[in-house]
Structures are given as structure tokens and as C-alpha cells.
């Protein structure tokens, strides 16, 4: 978008939307949308409170644990699938199935098996994130140039060396792409888990605010959540671009 030859920065329209929010809020059009300025004030008030800090901490811990598990399991499984046809044919239907399945339906099972707590939420996060990580790692390994593999062989690389010095790096752009999407899905997973098991983290906070009709509190938390999710996904996209400069030229 350019105005008089000047290029408006991407995402700058969000400022316009913020102004619109403020106007709608001030106009008193609806009780459910308080002015942005009020939401921001509330945000500064609650951001230091133990309730908020607690929720944030619980969410971040569950999220990190879930993602860590998804990455630690997903990447090796994906690489294995990419390298071994037998494993691939055994696992691929399941991976594809879980990738598109409505995983929300599994949360009740996790609740009865692992209780109404942290453990279930961590597993929910992992479940949301892992499938795309597996699939991308697999695709990354599958596209590795045969001549690169043969090069490693011809120079007498040990299997371990070949893995760490060739396969991993050659597949890295795809793997990172998978991790980025997995992380975004994981964020959704952790929140869905908390909503359904609403006694922990932001789930509990939402319950509290909405049952007391504390609208600006509610929006303040949403704002923090969305901003963090967006920043995270942009950061990962940035990292991915830095690594994938060689993706096109392999």
C-alpha cells in the first residue's frame, strides 16, 4: 500500500483498527467492547497481580513442555520415516489422520486418564503440535538430494556423521518450517486445553472474568495472549527465513 509514493509499513493498518476500537468503545455501542485505552489501563493493573502472573507462568510452562516433547519426539520420528520405507508406510496413515482430526475430541480422554491438571494440558499441546513436525521432517529428509547422500558415503562418513553433518542440515529448512507451524498449533492447543480443563492458567482466568462480566479484564488478557502468539510466530518465521536462504539452492 503506497500513499503519494510513500510505502506504508506492513501491519501499520493495525493502528487504524486500534483507533476504531477506541471509537466503538467510547461510543458505548455495546457493553462487551470497552475502549482500548481502558483495556490497556486494566492490562497494566493486572499484569503484576499474582493471579495473572500465575496464569502466565502455568501457560508458558505447559506450552514449553508440550512443544519440547513434540520437537524431541517429532523430529526423530519424521527423519526415521523419511529414511525407512517400512516405518514410513506403517506410520504415515496415522500421522495424516491425526493431522486433520478434530483433536479437541481427545481432550476429554486426556482428562479422565491424566486428571484435570497440568499433565493433560501438556499432552494436549504436544498432540496439536507434533503431527506437522513429523510430516515436515519426513518431507525434509525425503527431498535430500541423492548426490549429497552419495557424496557423504564416498567420503566414508559414518552413519552418525552422515546424520548430523548431512541429513539434519539438508532437511533443516523443512524441519524448521514444521516446527514453526507446530508451535502455532501448540499455542492453540494449550489454550484449548486450558479452556476445557478450566481450572488452570488462562482458562481459570477467563472463567473468573467472564462470570463477573469484567470486560476490560477479559480483553486485556486476550490482547496479551494474541500479541504473544503473533510475536512468537513472526520470530519463528524470521528464523526460518534466515536458515532457508539455502533451501532453494540445495
Amino acid at each position: 500500500m503506497t500513499i503519494h509514493g510513500y510505502r506504508l509499513p506492513a501491519m501499520s493498518s493495525l493502528v487504524l483498527w486500534a483507533v476504531l476500537w477506541e471509537i466503538v468503545g467510547r461510543s458505548g455501542l455495546t457493553f462487551f467492547i470497552p475502549p482500548l485505552s481502558e483495556v490497556l489501563q486494566t492490562l497494566f493493573q493486572i499484569i503484576g497481580t499474582p493471579a495473572f502472573q500465575n496464569a502466565l507462568q502455568e501457560t508458558v510452562v505447559a506450552f514449553l513442555a508440550g512443544i519440547l516433547a513434540a520437537v524431541a519426539i517429532g523430529i526423530p520420528v519424521g527423519i526415521l520415516m523419511g529414511k525407512s520405507r517400512l516405518v514410513d508406510e506403517m506410520l504415515l496413515p496415522w500421522v495424516n489422520m491425526f493431522l486433520s482430526a478434530p483433536l479437541t475430541a481427545l481432550v476429554p480422554v486426556l482428562m479422565v486418564l491424566f486428571g484435570f491438571g497440568m499433565k493433560s494440558i501438556v499432552i494436549t499441546t504436544t498432540l496439536f503440535a507434533i503431527w506437522i513436525i513429523i510430516l515436515n521432517s519426513r518431507a525434509g529428509v525425503k527431498q535430500i538430494d541423492r548426490s549429497l547422500v552419495e557424496m557423504a558415503r564416498s567420503f566414508g562418513a559414518s552413519p552418525l556423521d552422515a546424520f548430523y553433518k548431512v541429513y539434519f542440515w539438508a532437511a533443516l529448512p523443512e524441519i524448521l518450517g514444521g516446527v514453526r507451524i507446530g508451535v502455532i498449533r501448540g499455542v492453540k492447543g494449550v489454550i484449548i486445553g486450558q479452556l476445557l480443563i478450566s481450572v488452570v492458567g488462562f482458562g481459570a482466568l477467563f472463567e473468573l472474568y467472564s462470570s463477573n462480566f469484567l470486560m476490560s479484564h477479559f480483553w486485556a488478557v486476550l490482547l496479551v495472549l494474541f500479541a504473544m502468539a503473533f510475536a512468537l510466530s513472526e520470530l519463528l518465521a524470521h528464523l526460518e527465513r534466515r536458515v532457508s536462504y539455502y533451501a532453494a539452492k540445495r
Binding site: 500500500m1 506504508l8 506492513a10 501491519m11 501499520s12 493498518s13 493495525l14 487504524l16 483498527w17 462487551f32 502455532i184 499455542v187 492453540k188 494449550v190 489454550i191 484449548i192 479452556l195 488462562f202 477467563f206 472463567e207 472474568y209 467472564s210 462480566f213 477479559f218 488478557v221 486476550l222 495472549l225 494474541f226 502468539a229 503473533f230 512468537l232 510466530s233 513472526e234
Partner: peptide, 26 residues
């Protein structure tokens, strides 16, 4: 593009499920 894309880019990344309690209120 300038006006709307950012909204949907943020929506794509955000855990929109968090809006459910609000939707129920409204």
C-alpha cells in the same frame, strides 16, 4: 490488502478459542 490482511494474519497465529467465553456472553 493493507487494511485487512494484518487482521487475518494475527487471527491465523492467535489462539482464537480464547474468544469463546466472550461469544457465550454476547
Amino acid at each position: 490488502d493493507w487494511l485487512f490482511s494484518p487482521i487475518f494474519i494475527v487471527m491465523q497465529a492467535a489462539p482464537l478459542a480464547a474468544l469463546i467465553p466472550l461469544l457465550v456472553m454476547v
